[in-house]
Design a protein around this nucleic acid. Structure first.
Lengths: 338, 338
DNA sequence: CTTACTTACCAAAGCGTTTTGGGTTATCAT
DNA sequence: ATGATAACCCAAAACGCTTTGGTAAGTAAG
């Protein structure tokens, strides 16, 4: 059942049927209804390939993920993708997944956009200085960044207010009387880590607390790495009475380290972790967390931004979205000792 | 740079250029080389959309995953997808990701295939009786199953020899002198669980060992569930001296339960887990495991099968692939006590 | 020197839409 | 009545490729 057949069945031209279905105004209400009903009844579905060819758009967006990165295995990624596909479906767009070695990532963008397979990209895991963004900007390829880079004035992005999240966390601990607060963070090349780190410093300053260099530890984006960082912290002569971990991967490791050492969270030490602790880790305590919208909602938000981007005509302000984090209280923190 | 432009540049017809590039035999070697070189030099890339329209194929395959399932978060899924995209890229196909609620899953297939967005599907997490497979078979939509259903004669699939894997595991434990072997498994509606379970029974029979019903426990596909199952096993009056867990999600939980109880693997109890234990779990021991090709290689294998399927003309035997598992020795098992 | 193949190429007809640039009829003020 | 305006509708071109059904030139066989 193609457009021509439908048109013949209705004694109309293909043009009119097409325009009726696509909401053009030069079709009478009566005709439009007739068309829509017939399309429904006969189960007509436009051929997206023909559509794309005629319109010069692929009606698909691409997402490239690096093959060898630790975070390929990050389940959260898949959840974002899930929300994304759902949102894109509503505007009749497809999501194309491509993989690339880190080295070949730019080539992959090139191939996809040059080959007109996708209309735009989503760039995930943004770095402070991100060559992918530089490349796409310079090549004039539309994209939406999941996370801002340092210089983010000129392109669309979706991000969390990471700085505010850390300020929130510090304020909570300071309110509980903590004066010695440690901080475990991912590589500051990741902008989310950079922002959260900045927020930590600002929060400490606002609370009038000193920042101790030896309690500022960098960990990789991996559970084991967080484990080691926390162990390192615990082995120091002077321990902080509270610790913030800037990502949940390292957070899981950090919490496990405390358990292994028999240190009770909420009593012996206070812990706040970003993004909570996923239930698959078999840790029973409720960790006090800085939380953001669910990954799934995040995906839907990005779909919205994406459709605006492709529709065109939206000012940049409507293509940038900042989500405020919240503090979710658990029982992993408590009043400072003494 | 489109085909016509390239043809004009070469003083050839578009037909000839197209046929030269697509390996038709009615082009002289000299001309073909000239064309290929010019295409290379001018950076010509065929427009896949136009191509698809002309050929009546989408040049894309679809993979639908359920939104609410536990295993959306399964990192292994993403790794398979990674290998898949890589393999498909080589044959110039795209991977389209779609999500669906379990309820709406069949509709999604319908929409994608009816809308000619994809040429074929990959069906993952196959059940013994799988309505998706029934549907696709009956609808005449090409697909490749990742895992067989019970009745798997008539369609293409990729699978592991799960039964052999369990036989291997039992034989190893029996060889170590174990006579009392427990088994924790996922829902037998999953065919992989069914097959592994059958293999367990066969292995026990072949070793002349009795199967104790109270040591045959079902757990969900989740770490917590495996934790609880192992705890249940440990709380019984009589404990087995060895346990096999049929999936690594439950396996992680089971191992954690042993650690929490202070039971030392390899000394107090022997443990074999399917698919190993991912490094993100912060468990230090090397668990003896039934292992399969990496997820990434699995994906590439599936890409191969898929391209055969779409090329047509291959007998079913070349569209079905069974991988043999191996036993990877660790230090979580040891001789039976006494 | 035909006849019959083979080789190397090409014009034109699709593929199923959207878009362009009208055209026809009714409506309305003049 | 008449020109202008609006409201509907449509034929044909375009999108960039593949495929069909040739033709012309060269070669081999009769």
């Amino acid at each position: 059942m193609d457009l021509k057949a439908l048109a013949a069945h209705l004694n109309l031209s293909a043009t009119t049927v097409s325009r009726a279905l696509n909401g053009y105004s030069d079709v009478s209400a009566k005709t439009r209804q007739r068309v829509v009903e017939a399309a429904q009844a006969l189960g007509y579905q436009p051929n997206p390939v023909a559509r794309s060819l005629a319109m010069g758009r692929a009606n698909a967006i691409g997402i490239v993920y690096p093959l060898e990165a630790d975070d390929v295995a990050d389940p959260r990624f898949l959840q974002v993708v899930s929300g994304l596909t759902e949102g894109l479906m509503e505007v009749n767009m497809d999501l194309l997944l491509a993989s690339a070695t880190h080295k070949g990532e730019l080539d992959t963008y090139d191939r996809l956009v040059h080959g007109r397979r996708v209309d735009a990209f989503i760039v995930a895991r943004t770095l402070c200085q991100d060559e992918r963004i530089d490349y796409l900007q310079q090549a004039g390829v539309p994209f939406l960044a999941y996370g801002r880079s340092t210089d983010c004035q000129a392109y669309p992005w979706f991000d969390f207010d990471n700085e505010a999240g850390s300020v929130l966390a510090v304020a909570r601990l300071a309110g509980l009387g903590h004066r010695h607060i440690g901080y475990i963070h991912a590589s500051l090349h990741y902008n989310f880590a950079h922002q959260r780190h900045a927020g930590f410093l600002r929060g400490m300053a606002e609370a009038g607390l000193p920042v101790a260099g030896q309690w500022l530890l960098q960990a990789g984006l991996a559970r084991r790495s967080g484990y080691q960082a926390m162990m390192g912290l615990l082995d120091q002569d002077q321990r902080p009475s509270a610790v913030i971990v800037d990502n949940n991967l390292a957070g899981v490791g950090a919490v496990r380290a405390l358990l292994d050492r028999g240190i009770v969270m909420g009593r012996d030490i206070s812990v706040i972790v970003y993004d909570g602790i996923p239930p698959d880790t078999l840790l029973t305590q409720h960790i006090t967390s800085v939380v953001q919208p669910t990954q799934h909602r995040t995906g839907k938000h990005m779909a919205t931004l994406m459709s605006r981007l492709l529709a065109g005509g939206h000012p940049l302000s409507e293509l940038q979205m900042l989500c405020q984090p919240e503090l979710q209280a658990g029982d992993s923190d408590g009043p400072a000792p003494g």
